[in-house]
Design a protein around this nucleic acid. Structure first.
Lengths: 334, 334
DNA sequence: TTGTACGCGTTATCAA
DNA sequence: TTGATAACGCGTACAA
């Protein structure tokens, strides 16, 4: 079971170059107070022995890991991938490593992840997980791990948050639709356990309709293109029109495709809207009307905020990205 | 919530429960040789103090990190996301953390990543990076970090590899096409710096055409849907037909959309094939003919192989996933 | 069953 | 400018 790691240590470098390990440490950390001669000597033996400092030991000694924990529900959504990509860009730029924790939409896992984030000794964490409660996240904070939370307003000494603001734009979309004479009945496509973002959107949908006194539908579906596609193929055997609000592009595309494959016209008979739009909204046909938030930008911003938070230089602990409406061909421009 | 705590150490737990730290250590690691009474006492104070062991110190003491390094070019491709998702599934199941290194298609970065993988002290690494040379990867191996390499045949004491086999299926696709009387000129859509997988496919394309004595084209394009789309919109002003081999779904869809948006019919006038197909091949319209390899499965397998390798129980150090042809509507079924 | 003492590889604080 | 030496938080022979 043991690893036969013959790791070269700083001590061996010191011996081989005839100096003390303190000196080697200084060379490694590019501190001053070393003669050019000894520096060169040490660097040469470092090269020769192929010495690489142990990040573990360094972290233990300095109490800093240049490592940031990322908590996401799954790596499988395009918008999460974009988010992750923004994060990796900044991480590279600023010299941080990333430790990835995926929770798969289960609160249990999410909680056990919190424990791991703490034991892992990260310098900070970015949490994009809809299942986690305020209390769960405050637990991280109580261990004084600087944290940026996406999509969950949380106040705390070492916590900042980024809001993804869909509600207002969504409310406007709905009211505009009816005001301009939209005739189709709107249906919210509910996905089980898809997290708080969807739940909040659903609430907005219901509230707005009730306020307007309009009829509406809620349709349950799986969080999968194939299932949703076949479900809606059945659906369109009985219903020949509708305006469907879907969580993300894949779901919206499933509805769109089910409609067109069953002889219905999009957007004349069936309109479809995607809440969390990605580049695929432009790729599928008809192109999808959707809200857009540049998730790569969100990822970058989260990293910048977190780094400031780590340095205790974050003034504004909150930040908001507003969803931007992009009308395309899956809805009728009234 | 609680106030922000300084990190509680094992020593404080020991003092508070009136035992030695060795006993606390035994409790943590669920070893035997502890009275139920003292165990309970210790567990209670652990709970009370909110003690979490430092993974750092544990790793330093045991020389094991339960941490695996993942090297990928970018998190932004769907097939990479799927791969990552397979990995995270197994990581959760087996209790490993993942440290993510993205290299963005630059060899320089890829090399500096190697250094980081070594200093990070991971128990093992999975490398899916087309830019890395055999020598680069052997460097990791020389530090005896067990490694699974995707898409790069590498032999070594502590290295295993997984081959994504597109060549054979690709060659067959081409020869079948001509044998059955395909009339369109085939064009390989070349993306600059897209890595070895694409390069190998391009070579297969060229070789097969030369062997058959057929004319062919190579078209350069950007690795972006939007650019490719507008490039091909221009292209289709001059050319009214063709059979295009694209690297991945986004590129293929760009060509398809450019064709249909310019009044050409797919697949009658323009045929398109996607080498690395994902679920989006089914979503876009017309649906894309493509090769499919289940990248989530590849990710899982990579993890299982790596874990065996770490335990020195990996018998077969190589593994091969064959691309599977899925014919859909972007090509004519001859 | 429990405790002592040392080691893991590094940084950091003093003296020299 | 250098070199001992004490942390950092934990695991683990070995002894009690």
């Amino acid at each position: 079971m043991d690893n036969i790691k013959e790791r070269v240590t700083i001590y061996q470098v010191a011996q081989a170059s005839g100096v003390s390990l303190a000196t080697v440490s200084r060379v490694i950390n590019k501190q001053g107070n070393v003669t050019a001669a000894t520096r060169e000597k040490v660097e040469k033996t470092i090269e020769k022995l192929g010495y690489k400092p142990s990040g573990l030991a360094q972290s233990l000694a300095t109490n800093r890991t240049t490592n940031i924990g990322i908590v996401i529900p799954s790596a499988n959504y395009v918008y999460i991938s974009n988010f992750l990509n923004g994060i990796t860009d900044v991480a590279k730029e600023k010299g941080f490593s990333l430790t990835l924790f995926a929770t798969s939409h289960s609160r249990e896992e999410a909680i056990s992840v919190i424990e791991k984030v703490i034991t892992t000794h990260v310098d900070g964490a970015i949490i994009f997980d809809d299942e986690l409660d305020v209390d769960d996240i405050m637990k991280i904070n109580s261990y004084s791990v600087p944290t940026i939370v996406i999509n969950n307003k949380i106040q705390g000494e070492r916590v900042g948050y980024i809001t993804l603001a869909y509600e207002e734009a969504f409310r406007r979309l709905i009211t505009d639709y009816y005001e301009r004479g939209g005739k189709k009945e709107m249906a919210f496509v509910h996905v089980h356990d898809a997290g708080r973002l969807l739940a909040r959107s659903e609430k907005t949908f219901l509230d707005t309709h009730q306020k307007l006194g309009r009829l509406y539908k809620v349709i349950n579906c799986d969080d999968s293109y194939s299932h949703t596609y076949s479900d809606f193929c059945d659906y369109f055997k009985n219903y020949k029109s509708g305006y469907f609000i879907a969580y993300r592009d894949s779901i919206a595309a499933a509805i769109e495709n089910a409609a067109t494959d069953n002889g219905l016209r999009v957007p004349e008979d069936v309109e479809v809207f995607s809440l969390v739009g990605t580049k695929y909204a432009k790729i599928v046909r008809p192109t999808l009307s959707s809200f857009i938030i540049d998730m790569a930008e969100v990822g970058k911003r989260a990293m910048y905020m977190l780094i400031d938070l780590i340095h205790r230089e974050l003034n504004d602990k909150s930040c908001r990205f507003d969803a931007h409406l992009e009308k395309r061909n899956s809805t009728i421009d009234l």
